[in-house]
Design a protein around this nucleic acid. Structure first.
Length: 187
DNA sequence: CCCTGATTCGC
DNA sequence: GCGAATCAGG
């Protein structure tokens, strides 16, 4: 009677295709989410698993076979997606303080330069819209800047592309690591 | 290189 | 039935 116990007591580790999960899969797939996104939402399965299941269920594939569905994969987001104000390319004409006299300290010049750059940034850089990724959707190159209250449902991560070896996108990296002159002036 | 879905095939 | 490995493509 005893012999080999299948040991199904793995608790949560058992990720089979329950009716619920299949329904969710169908729903998300029909909404146009990519297999990897669906896998991330379901949890415990790979995108391959999702694709495999989709086929087994004979769900309608994406129009273009093997094709990139990036465009089709983003059905809607207009609802409450933060829109980045587009007052971007306003140019700032700043008169450089060229203290002609030899008294012009190198430090001042360097500082001016830094400030110049800062102004340019402050003028051109706008708060980027986030991709609103879930924790499980983050990858090596997605910005991990958290947005919102972790306890609330709308909590998400920026998710924009982050430079290699950086956990944040360029925008949030600046907020995170505020270096030198920038901070000084902040005060 | 990043991503996508499609297919194969051992389990 | 399942899904990793592989294939094929943008």
């Amino acid at each position: 009677m005893d012999s080999a116990i299948p040991t199904p007591r793995t608790g949560i580790a058992e990720m089979n295709w329950t009716d619920e999960r299949v329904e969710k899969l169908k729903k998300l797939w029909s909404e146009g989410l990519s297999a990897s996104q669906i896998a991330a939402q379901l949890g415990g399965v790979s995108r391959n698993a999702v694709i495999g299941k989709v086929h087994r269920l004979s769900l309608p594939g994406r129009a273009k076979a093997g094709g990139n569905t990036t465009a089709a994969a983003r059905p809607k987001r207009a609802a409450s997606a933060p829109r980045a104000p587009n007052y971007a390319a306003r140019s700032v004409t700043r008169t450089v303080t060229r203290t002609a006299g030899a008294t012009a300290l190198k430090e001042d010049v360097a500082l001016d330069f830094a400030v110049d750059q800062e102004i340019v940034r402050d003028t051109n850089v706008v708060v980027p819209m986030s991709r609103r990724l879930e924790l499980t959707e983050l990858t090596e190159r997605t910005c991990k800047w958290p947005i919102g209250d972790p306890l609330k449902d709308e909590f998400h991560f920026c998710g924009n592309e982050s430079p290699e070896a950086s956990p944040y996108c360029t925008y949030h990296a600046r907020l995170a690591y505020q270096p030198s002159a920038e901070r000084r002036r902040m005060r």
